[in-house]
Amino acid sequence: MKKNKEIEVHSEETSRNIKGQTYPVTELYIGKKQIGEVLHFGSKEFQSFADDEDLGTSKTLDLAIETIIRRWNLHEN
């Protein structure tokens, strides 16, 4: 039976200018590798991206982060 290993994910806050509008962005990293980012379009609109792939919109930051981690887990393991 394969043991689950714990992986530490950390985030960095930055901003991005899109079409003249500045949006907050949360970048997610495992080690030094960026696994995705979340654009904060509003109080209940968080757009998730991983490797330039649009993963969809979530209503909370936590759900958006979970989407990126699940996608990473499926493609990296």
Score class of each variant (00 low, 15 high):
2 K>P: 12
3 K>A: 09
4 N>I: 03
4 N>W: 07
5 K>W: 05
6 E>W: 02
6 E>R: 01
6 E>L: 04
7 I>E: 10
7 I>T: 09
9 V>K: 00
9 V>Y: 09
10 H>K: 07
11 S>K: 01
12 E>F: 02
12 E>R: 09
13 E>R: 08
13 E>K: 11
16 R>T: 15
17 N>S: 13
19 K>G: 11
19 K>W: 11
20 G>H: 01
20 G>A: 01
22 T>N: 13
23 Y>G: 10
23 Y>A: 12
24 P>F: 06
24 P>D: 15
25 V>K: 09
26 T>Q: 06
26 T>R: 06
26 T>N: 06
26 T>S: 11
27 E>Y: 00
27 E>D: 13
27 E>W: 00
27 E>P: 04
28 L>C: 10
31 G>S: 08
32 K>D: 15
32 K>R: 13
33 K>W: 00
34 Q>S: 11
34 Q>Y: 04
34 Q>K: 14
36 G>D: 13
38 V>L: 01
38 V>F: 04
40 H>S: 09
40 H>R: 05
41 F>E: 14
42 G>K: 06
43 S>G: 09
43 S>E: 15
44 K>T: 15
45 E>N: 11
46 F>P: 01
46 F>R: 00
46 F>D: 01
47 Q>L: 14
47 Q>W: 14
47 Q>E: 15
47 Q>M: 12
48 S>E: 08
48 S>F: 03
49 F>Q: 03
51 D>W: 11
51 D>M: 07
51 D>T: 07
53 E>D: 15
55 L>N: 07
55 L>G: 08
56 G>I: 14
56 G>K: 14
57 T>D: 15
58 S>L: 04
58 S>V: 03
59 K>D: 15
60 T>H: 07
62 D>M: 05
62 D>E: 14
63 L>M: 12
64 A>I: 00
65 I>A: 08
65 I>M: 12
66 E>K: 11
67 T>H: 05
67 T>E: 12
68 I>E: 00
68 I>C: 02
69 I>F: 04
72 W>D: 15
72 W>I: 07
73 N>M: 00
74 L>S: 14
74 L>T: 09
75 H>L: 12
75 H>M: 10
75 H>F: 09
77 N>H: 05
77 N>F: 01
